[in-house]
Design a protein around this nucleic acid. Sequence first.
DNA 1: AATTATATTTAGATTTGTCTAAAAATAAAG
DNA 2: CTTTATTTTTAGACAAATCTAAATATAATT
Lengths: 221, 221
Amino acid sequence: MITSTEEDYIKAIFNISQRGKKELVGTNQIASQMSTSAASVTDMLRKLDKKEMIIYEKYKGVKLSPLGTIKAMTLLRKHRLWESFLVEKLGFAWDEVHDIAEQMEHIQSTELVNRLDKYLGYPKFDPHGDPIPDAQGTITIRNQVSLSSLQTGDKGMVVGVKKHDKDFLNHLNQVGINIGTELEIILKYDYDQSIKLNINNSNEALLTAAVCENIFLKKFS
Amino acid sequence: MITSTEEDYIKAIFNISQRGKKELVGTNQIASQMSTSAASVTDMLRKLDKKEMIIYEKYKGVKLSPLGTIKAMTLLRKHRLWESFLVEKLGFAWDEVHDIAEQMEHIQSTELVNRLDKYLGYPKFDPHGDPIPDAQGTITIRNQVSLSSLQTGDKGMVVGVKKHDKDFLNHLNQVGINIGTELEIILKYDYDQSIKLNINNSNEALLTAAVCENIFLKKFS
DNA sequence: AATTATATTTAGATTTGTCTAAAAATAAAG
DNA sequence: CTTTATTTTTAGACAAATCTAAATATAATT
Ligand SMILES: [Mn+2]
Ligand SMILES: [Mn+2]
Ligand SMILES: [Mn+2]
Ligand SMILES: [Mn+2]
C-alpha cells in the first residue's frame, strides 16, 4: 500500500533527478518542489526508505530504488494518459489539464490505465510532447533540440515544452505556438539571444531567450 | 474545502436515508455502512455539523442540510457519470466499475464533470439503472416496480438493480440478466415466493425471492 | 584551520481520521 | 415503573502528514 502523498514525493524525486545532472537529490530541492518544509521531507524520506522505494543516506541525499523507479514510471504513464484523454476526448486545452491529471494519476487500477491506453490508441506522447511509458514502463526517446540551440535560417517543428505551468503555456497560445507548429528562425539577436521567427509560414513573433530555452523542436534536414 | 472522507460520509448518509423510511439516520447505521466504529462516526458528525453539511442532534440522529444534499447530488452525478464512462467507452462490465468510480467521484473539477457529461451524450441513467443528476442536481424519476411485486403471466424489462456488489451482479450475469433484458414470469411459487421466468424469450431461470427483491422492472401494459 | 553560511535533521506540536474501552443516554421488556 | 438491552457519546490513545524552532552536520570563505 502506498498513499498518494508518497506517490507525489516519488514523482518529485524523479522529476528533480531528471532535470539535474547530479545523481542524488537533496532534501531542500524536494521541499521546494513540493512546497513543503524540509522537516516534512526528512520524515517522508525515512518512510519511503523503510518501504524500499528510495535509497537514502542521512545528510548525503536520496535516489529512487528500482522499485521506486517502476512506481515513478507508472505515475508518469497514468498522468500523461489522463492528460491525453482530457485533451483528445474532452476537448480541454493543453494548459488546463495538468492540475486535473495531478489528481487522476492517483486512481488505483491497472486495468483502468491499460484500457484507457487502448482507448486512446496507445499514444506515444502527451499533449505537452512528453513521452508516455508503455505498460512495461519503457518510453520512446525522440531526438529533439531546444529552440535556443537553433541559428538564423534553421527550421523545425515544435514537439515539446519543458515547463508545464499555465502562465507559460498561455503565453505560447498567445503567440500561436503549440505541439506540431512549424517554426523558421528569421533572426537570432546576438545582444540577448532573443529570436525573431516565422510561425507556420504566416505570422511573425519574437521570443525571449528564457522562453526559447523551454521549447523543444525536431529540426528539419 | 471538503475532504474525500467527508464526502464518503455525506454519501453514506444520503444512501441510508434513501432506502429507509425514517427521516433521521443513526450513528450505528452510518458506522456499519462505512465499516467503521460508532465513535469515529460521532467525531465526523460533529465536524460535518460545524461545516453545515448536516443537521445533527446528539443522541437523536442526523440528516443532510440543503448544502449537504447538493453535495450528495454532485457526488452521485460524478460517480454515475464515471461508471457510465467506464462501461460505455472503456468496455468494463457493470460489476467491475463501482470500486473505480468510488475513487473517481472525488476528483475536484466541475469543468471536468460537465465535459464528461457532454462527451457521454448527457445520459439519464448509469449502468445499474440509477438516475444521473444533471448539472442543476435534478434527477429523472422513472416509474419502476420490484420484480417481487409481479405475478404469474406479467412481463417487463429490467431497468435497474438495488444492490451494486460484485457478487450479486455476477449472479445476474450468470443467469443472463442485465439492464434492458426482457422478462416474463412463468410461475411464482407460493411456498417461498421464488420465481420461474423466461429471459429475452429464450432461456428459462429460477430466482429466489431475495434476488427478485433487488431487481427493478418497467412493467409492460 | 577557524569561522561563517547553508543544508539537513531532531524535538515538540498540531490536525485528521481512526481505534478500544468505559460512561451516559435512550429504548425495550418485564 | 424498574430493570435490562441497545445506542450513542466521551475519554484517551495512535498513526500519518504536516509545521516551527532549535540543534547538528556539511560546505564555503576567509
Ligand atoms: Mn499528484
Ligand atoms: Mn504533460
Ligand atoms: Mn468514494
Ligand atoms: Mn451505479
